[in-house]
Nucleic acid binder design. Structure first.
Lengths: 252, 252
DNA sequence: GCGGTCAGTTGACGGAGGTCAACTGACCAT
DNA sequence: ATGGTCAGTTGACCTCCGTCAACTGACCGC
């Protein structure tokens, strides 16, 4: 195969939802035929974001929703002192920007953790399509609802789990999401720093560091900087479980 | 005014969004005229829920969204051990049930904290109206987005704040929401137990108890069982602020 | 190579908040 | 009234995890 053809194919890939590798994971899931073409037409490509680059900032006007095509991002809120709380990490196929629907302003910020490419869905155009395509409307609601459910998971982790359970749950969740992307879920290459993980879980970086060491001693993980190999997925799964019924509170 | 007329008026009130006291806070905000009538027609009344009664359970099929008309509810998720994490408390005008949009099953549970009455919005009927009324569609998205933003607040509270800051923030938030309902925001009558508050904040009941006592000693509150009077709103506001830059992590 | 910087690790120590236990006082059924 | 139950309070103790500090090793520009 000659080089020009390959380049052309790549460009095609970059513009067509139907041929995108993330097809079933992304917004178009469940959309077909003409409707998919119409959705396709609303998608604007966004040039790649370098590590550290911001996709949107707090206070930015709401213009679009964004889909991660490759790479990874974090979203976070910041208080006036500059103190941040990371809300989520976003992998390929995941959609960002729903925070701005309420007030037409972004109330959180999104930053690339590594070089990433993004599909942009201008909301005005998206609305035109959704009003004609009820299936897309439902799908969009479903995606926001997934975000709500995902935040429930985050809340449970923070509110009910001990530090080690939190980190185990975090790693397992990441592994599951990588597997959905047809990547190896046992050999992770973490796009985020230890600081980011600590912040996300409401802990400090030293605690994360100690926990990685401890889980390595236990034979659960093999850790080398950003690379984490899960040697014992079964053990990792048990570490996620809160065995001490501490902070117990079955519903009264 | 004779009794029969009064009763009739009350029944009218119970069925008309446009004359409901929660009008501007509820889903219909920003909807007018014919469109409001059409929305109105989809609203089914739900008989009152007694304290402790469940509005929906985990695994229930998704049938409707619900608006609190009076009273208060809590929503929570439960793990297999029966351990619960409270996700939110819901006051009049607030909408519940979005968790089920993703999978058509409820993944959380909703329970009345006191005798409450509920408006039910059957989702099938609601969808018909939203597909004809784009403004309602946008409004619905906005309401879900508010839920996402509200969960961000909860995450920041849990992840970045100390116990006393958390409780202060919790009380201030409750006071603000009561004021939006045109109720006195300085004299709260907590619908939830100390256990519920502790669970919501990821703490234990003893800590909540001690904090109430401490804030009473400081002259910020006057506490008597479920009744909390805010004596010094200014001090309460300062207690919400994280002054020790602990767990610090400005964005890297 | 060499020094600077910064992410990450490890140890020693302390404190915020969890645990356990005892007590008080509403509230309720008999 | 009386006893039982359960929400809430308070104290004594302990532990998990945060704090502080020192160190290691990538990585990078010179």
């Amino acid at each position: 195969m000659e080089t020009p053809a390959t380049v052309f194919d790549l460009n095609q890939l970059r513009r067509s939802c139907s041929s995108c590798a993330l097809y079933e994971l992304c917004l178009p899931a469940g959309i077909a035929g003409d409707d998919l073409d119409r959705l396709d037409a609303t998608v604007k490509d966004k040039r790649a974001l370098d590590r550290g680059a911001m996709l949107y900032r707090e206070g930015d006007p709401f213009e679009a929703l964004y889909v991660v095509r490759s790479g990874a991002l974090k979203t976070f809120v910041q208080n006036e002192a500059g103190d941040a709380q990371i809300l989520a990490f976003h992998l390929p196929g995941e959609i960002l920007g729903f925070d701005a629907l309420a007030s037409n302003l972004h109330v959180s910020q999104a930053e690339a953790l590594e070089r990433s490419s993004i599909c942009e869905l201008p909301y005005a155009k998206l609305q035109q399509v959704t009003s004609d395509v009820p299936a897309l409307h439902r799908q969009l609601m479903r995606v926001i609802s997934r975000e709500v459910v995902e935040e429930h998971r985050h809340l449970v982790m923070m509110g009910r789990q001990q530090a080690q359970e939190q980190l185990a749950t975090f790693l397992k969740n990441l592994a599951d999401r990588y597997e959905r992307l047809h990547r190896d879920g046992t050999s992770l290459n973490l796009p985020m720093s230890r600081y980011d993980i600590a912040n996300y879980l409401g802990l400090v970086v030293e605690t994360i560091s100690r926990l990685f060491s401890r889980m390595e001693e236990m034979g659960v993980l093999e850790v080398n900087r950003k690379s984490v190999r899960i040697l014992r997925p079964d053990l990792l799964a048990t570490l996620c479980r809160t065995d001490a019924p501490s902070r117990r509170n079955d519903v009264g």
